[in-house]
Design a binder for these strands. Structure first.
Lengths: 186, 186
DNA sequence: AAAAAATGAATGAACGTTCATTTTTGAAAA
DNA sequence: TTTTCAAAAATGAACGTTCATTCATTTTTT
């Protein structure tokens, strides 16, 4: 078995279960079924480990979501596809969501690197600009559009994971992405 | 000067400046201008201190936002007032926002208490239900409505604090709350 | 001068990291 | 195929540091 992957998976599991605050190297090692020292064969240290995991998730996310983008299709269809894929990504592996949320606001990294936090939004950005050019998306400032798309997505997933709503219910995702579309379309 | 308040303010400042991860009792004491031991005269320990601060901010927030609510006025006016007040609250003291965000996803508290996280949403909830009853707000599930209101607010403040947009610019808040209203109104 | 508040050095536990030692691997030799 | 053995991988006890908390002592208040 790939130990590097096992270690990363342990961090993911532990951060979700107990939070960043209670995360420590011994627990990570135990959960991964390796010795504490082994972690240092694959990562420079705790900080490096955390950052590597973050990078991995961001890449997976972008890869997944961008698969829903097809130049040939209209903006609206692309929008629906991408929203749905983004939601599916987090519902399939809720630990990813919890980790990203905690990481974003618990900077291990230095302040300069914090701009990278917006990397997650790049697919949305791309689609947004295209829609504005075609005149199907309202001509309001980018930041507001971004807030109207990313914000609700974030909150609905939080609510789902807290069992305040159920996105797996038939039609739930449609209702949601249509509501968001209504917010941003002309 | 009230030492209890000074200690709480220190935590707020430090969490925003360096994050939860680097927070420690000696720094808190130094920043507050008291001895480390003094903190324990006012709080049971670190966890108690953090939780007390969270409770304080949530109360202040709700008090502020609910001042924008007037039973005599139409739902739309109340909505605009409350959104604006909520934004003002965080812009006036950005440390509050940063703290709440970090706290919400870095549970010191045990999982059971996590439902309290939704306490912050109570004013929105109240307004939402009233609007639905009057037929001025769309009849979609509460969770989706909540996501369409709370989510964008959260994100726009994040973007503002990251200097990706400027909510203090003339008309910016209007543009924003009107966009959100468009998303939720019939 | 008694009571209350504050201090900060001391304590011990927790934790990240290191490294001397052990185990595993796999290619070459028998 | 079996044996050998050097290199690579893995181990986990030990180390040094950090940090929350305590409490004997000092300072302030009444």
């Amino acid at each position: 078995m790939d130990k590097k992957q096992a270690i990363l998976k342990s961090v993911l599991k532990l951060v979700n279960r107990e939070g960043f605050y209670h995360l420590n190297m011994k627990k990570i090692a135990q959960e991964a079924g390796v010795a504490a020292g082994t972690i240092y064969l694959y990562f420079k240290g705790k900080e490096d480990l955390i950052n590597a995991l973050y990078g991995m998730i961001v890449n997976e996310f972008n890869q997944n979501v961008l698969e829903g983008y097809d130049d040939g299709k209209p903006v609206k269809a692309n929008f629906f596809n991408m929203i749905d894929l983004a939601i599916d990504f987090y519902l399939a592996e809720p630990d990813n969501f919890s980790f990203i949320e905690q990481y974003t606001y618990a900077p291990f990294l230095f302040k300069e690197n914090q701009d990278e936090n917006f990397t997650l939004l790049l697919p949305i950005y791309k689609m947004m600009r295209e829609g504005k050019k075609q005149g199907v998306i309202r001509n309001i400032p980018d930041a507001i559009l971004l807030a109207l798309i990313h914000g609700p997505m974030n909150t609905i997933i939080k609510l789902h994971l807290a069992h305040k709503t159920d996105l797996n219910k038939k039609g739930a995702k449609q209702k949601f992405h249509e509501a968001v579309w209504q917010a941003i379309s002309v």
